[in-house]
Simulated assay, not measured.
Amino acid sequence: MDTKATVNLGEYSRGVKSRVLNAVKALDHDMASKAKLIPGGLLEPVSGRSFLFFGESYKTSDFMIDGLEAWWEQRKPGYPVFVPW
Score class of each variant (00 low, 15 high):
Leu42Asn: 12
Asp66Ala: 09
Leu21Met: 10
His29Ile: 15
Lys34Tyr: 12
Met64Ile: 03
Ser47Trp: 06
Leu42Ile: 15
Ala32Asn: 07
Asp2His: 10
Trp85Pro: 14
Phe82Gln: 11
Lys25Ser: 08
Asp62Ala: 15
Arg75Lys: 03
Tyr12Gly: 01
Tyr12Arg: 00
Val46Phe: 11
Pro39Phe: 00
Asp28Trp: 05
Met31Ala: 08
Trp72Val: 08
Gly48Thr: 08
Ser61Lys: 06
Asp2Glu: 09
Leu42Lys: 07
Asn22Ile: 11
Leu9Tyr: 03
Gly40His: 07
Phe51Asp: 09
Met31Pro: 05
Trp85Ala: 15
Gln74Asp: 06
Arg19Trp: 07
Asn8Gly: 09
Trp71Asn: 05
Ser57Met: 06
Phe82Tyr: 10
Thr60His: 00
Gly10Met: 03
Leu42Gln: 04
Gly40Asn: 06
Asn22Phe: 08
Gly15Ala: 09
Ser13Leu: 01
Thr3Cys: 10
Trp72Ser: 09
Pro84Tyr: 08
Ser47Leu: 04
Ser61His: 13
Val81Phe: 14
Glu11Asn: 09
Lys4Tyr: 08
Glu56Phe: 13
Ala32Cys: 12
Glu44Asn: 15
Asp30Trp: 08
Leu27Tyr: 10
Tyr79His: 15
Leu27Ser: 13
Ala5Lys: 05
Leu27Asn: 10
Asp66Glu: 15
Asn22Ala: 12
Asp28Ile: 10
Tyr58Phe: 01
Glu56Leu: 11
Met1Thr: 09
Gly15Val: 14
Trp71Phe: 08
Leu42Gly: 06
Pro80Ile: 01
Phe54Met: 14
Pro45Val: 08
Trp72Phe: 13
Arg75Ala: 05
Pro77Asn: 00
Leu37Trp: 00
Thr60Gln: 01
Val20Pro: 01
Phe51Trp: 13
Lys59Val: 04
Gly67Ile: 04
Pro39Trp: 00
Val20Leu: 08
Met31Trp: 11
Asp2Phe: 04
Gly40Gln: 10
Gly10Lys: 02
Trp72Asp: 12
Arg19Gly: 13
Leu9Gly: 07
Val20Gln: 07
Lys17Ser: 15
Ser47Tyr: 04
Asp30Arg: 12
Pro77Ala: 01
Ala26Leu: 10
Lys34His: 13
Gln74Ala: 07
Gly78His: 12
Lys76His: 03
Val83Pro: 11
Lys34Asp: 12
Lys36Ser: 00
Asp62Leu: 07
Glu73Met: 06
Lys17Cys: 14
Glu73Thr: 14
Phe82Pro: 01
Gly55Thr: 07
Leu37Gly: 00
Val16Ser: 13
Pro45Ala: 00
Leu43Arg: 15
Gly48Lys: 12
Phe54Glu: 09
Leu27Pro: 02
Ser33Lys: 10
Ser13Cys: 11
Lys36Glu: 05
Lys34Ala: 05
Phe63Ile: 00
Thr6Ala: 06
Ser61Leu: 10
